[in-house]
Computed example of a mutant assay.
Amino acid sequence: MSLRSIRNHSVDPSAGRRAARYASIAVILSLAACSGDKKTINDLESHVPPVDTLYNNGIDALRDQRYALSAAEFDVLQQNYPYSAYVANAQLMAGYAYYLQDKYPEAVQQLDRFLELHPTSPDAAYAFYLRALCYYEQVAEVQRDQQGTIEAMNALEEVITRFPQSPYARDAQLKVDLCRDHLAGKEMLVGRYYQQQRSYHSAVNRYQRVVQDFQTTNHVPEALERLVEVYLDLGLTDQARRTASVLSYNYPGSKWYRYAYDTLRSKHLLSADTPAPHTGSGKASAKSADADGASPLAKAPPPPSEVRARRGFFSRVWHSVF
């Protein structure tokens, strides 16, 4: 319903205010009970506090780490003072308070509302970034469906595209790289499974996608080595040699090239100009982790190390914004 239709809608204004007041009280009571706040029913039933009091209470609760109460204060402000100048900040800070409670859908709802009503705000970059981080926080382990990772990556890339000079763009780019590495890890997981099941053509498709679509990730050397293995199993010795050459050129010191080199040598497929692996700091170990017959689902790489956001960073940001 638009603002104009709301103003023209024929209702009893006093009844609407009373209903909003009681709804606000119910919200605060339920959340205050969870957070251990000392407000009483009489304090809340007497009146809805002035708009500036609600806003300041929300900020104070946020600083005191009473995030549920903080979100409730900002929600009550929006319900009772929808045309106040405080509303924009209340939406943004409510999103942050929900984020700190790991209530990401509620946080995204607040941030979407803020961005819809204030698309040109100086704080839009912060809102887009916090919204993207809400998706990023929900990135699932590599064994699970990765639609959430794609959504997080898209939201982070929107921050980079819209605000390339903002203080959030660099951190967003780092997280995009982690998302891409996560997606590549999923492809490798499925590819290894197909390879174990001798579904070689399906395995090749997965490994080739890693090489072609995720070239900057850490999974490319393994994908190339796996391709060497699969091509040899398929009897495609020329493709195996060419893939090993790509591996040696780009990752000459990688353990994965040492594996490919040893495999080709064991099958007497090394050519005279095949370079030997560079000597690394450690010895190449057997690939027992993936060759012991166990399900590859139990050997998936862990999620990115930064799946949990740096909350201290956000604390500094909102203090500088507000």
Rank of each mutant, 00 (worst) to 15 (best):
M1D: 04
S5W: 00
R7D: 13
D12N: 15
G16S: 11
A19P: 01
A23F: 10
I28S: 08
A33M: 11
I41L: 15
V48Y: 03
D52G: 07
T53L: 02
A61L: 09
S70Y: 08
D75N: 14
V76F: 03
N80L: 13
Y83L: 04
N89M: 09
Q91I: 02
Q91R: 13
M93V: 00
G95H: 03
Y98S: 11
Q109C: 04
D112K: 02
L115T: 07
H118Y: 15
H118A: 05
A125R: 06
A127V: 03
Y129A: 06
E141Q: 10
I150M: 06
A155S: 14
A155T: 14
F163T: 05
S166W: 10
Y168E: 13
A172P: 01
L189A: 06
R192Q: 10
Y193N: 11
A203D: 00
P221Q: 09
A223M: 03
E225R: 05
V228L: 01
S248A: 15
W256G: 01
Y257T: 09
L270N: 09
T274V: 08
T274F: 13
T274I: 06
H278V: 14
G280K: 03
D292E: 13
A294M: 01
P296I: 10
A298M: 10
E306M: 09
R311C: 04
H319Q: 12
F322K: 06
